[in-house]
Simulated scan of single mutants.
Amino acid sequence: MPAPGQITSQIAPSASPAHREFARVLREFCQLITRSTYGPSSQKEICIALETRGRVGKVSQSTLTGLLSATRKPSLHVAMALYGLALEVAANDPEAAAAVPVAAEDLERLYEQALEYHCDCCSTRLEQLRTCDSSRGVGTPTGLTAAAAADSPACPPPLTLPVPPPEGDRQRVADQPPAWQPQEDLERYLRAGRTEDARVVLNHAGTAAAPADVVWAVASCRAAEMDTAADTILQHAGRRDPADVLLIAKLLVSNSWHTDAGVLLGAVGN
């Protein structure tokens, strides 16, 4: 009988070294949490705690096990949620505080290294963002033109608002993240015809929110069938610093939201 909180799965030897290291760090978070008297005592309770804190939707035990064993595609959403839960525990437990394995920026770096792109098209376009001329502000990816984007069958061409995009890989399922907090205000503004207020909310979501929160806002709008709002957020996000655009695109691709990644990348330089 395994001890409470004990991780019985092994890290898959077939995973890449970077993916195994990412899984190892997640395991350390879970062990820190379950060994402290201030945190959940099992992986099941960790999943419940992550869901009740919002931001990542429902996390099943099988999903967590897959992440801890590197048999599931890396998830920055879940990793950051685990990191946040570990910090909550560490705030009350000096011994746990000394055991936090990495800082947030290091966790993001490990995620980037562990992430395996879903398709060559998205991988190529993300790599082009790395060579963006930073002297232009948000810049235009080297060699990335509207014609080149349209030529690729793996990723859809950029869409022009306000035409709603096709369904494709849009995720409208029960395990969507919880509603984006400003969404209620946005819906109220739209119902009242307060379009300028709605624009302010969408602009802030795309240009000022953390990269993970941009993805959260887009996913929440998709779940509410507010596709135009989601696309508007992505259009704003596409004018951010190239490093932010790169991370947002990676988060979208890691969730298999390739159409949204196409909308984001299509907005770069516009």
Rank of each mutant, 00 (worst) to 15 (best):
N203L: 11
A208T: 10
Q43A: 07
A149N: 06
P182V: 00
A103S: 11
R130K: 12
E51L: 11
A210V: 07
E95V: 06
Y38F: 15
C30H: 08
A217T: 03
A15C: 11
V245A: 09
V163C: 01
S9T: 15
V200P: 02
P211A: 07
R199H: 14
L186M: 01
A23G: 09
G266V: 01
I248F: 06
L144N: 09
L247G: 01
A96V: 00
G5A: 08
P94E: 05
L26A: 03
T63N: 09
L110Y: 10
L67F: 10
T52A: 12
V100Q: 07
L82R: 01
L264W: 05
S123F: 10
P141A: 02
L50C: 09
H77I: 00
L68E: 01
D227K: 04
A267N: 04
P158F: 06
Q6E: 15
Q6W: 13
I48M: 12
I248T: 03
Q113T: 00
C132P: 03
V201N: 01
V218G: 03
R125Q: 12
E116A: 09
A104V: 01
R194E: 14
S14P: 10
V163E: 14
A98I: 00
T71H: 09
L82G: 01
A86F: 05
T8D: 15
R222I: 12
G137P: 10
S60M: 10
A210H: 14
V245W: 04
W180T: 00
D169A: 02
P156L: 04
A103G: 12
L129N: 02
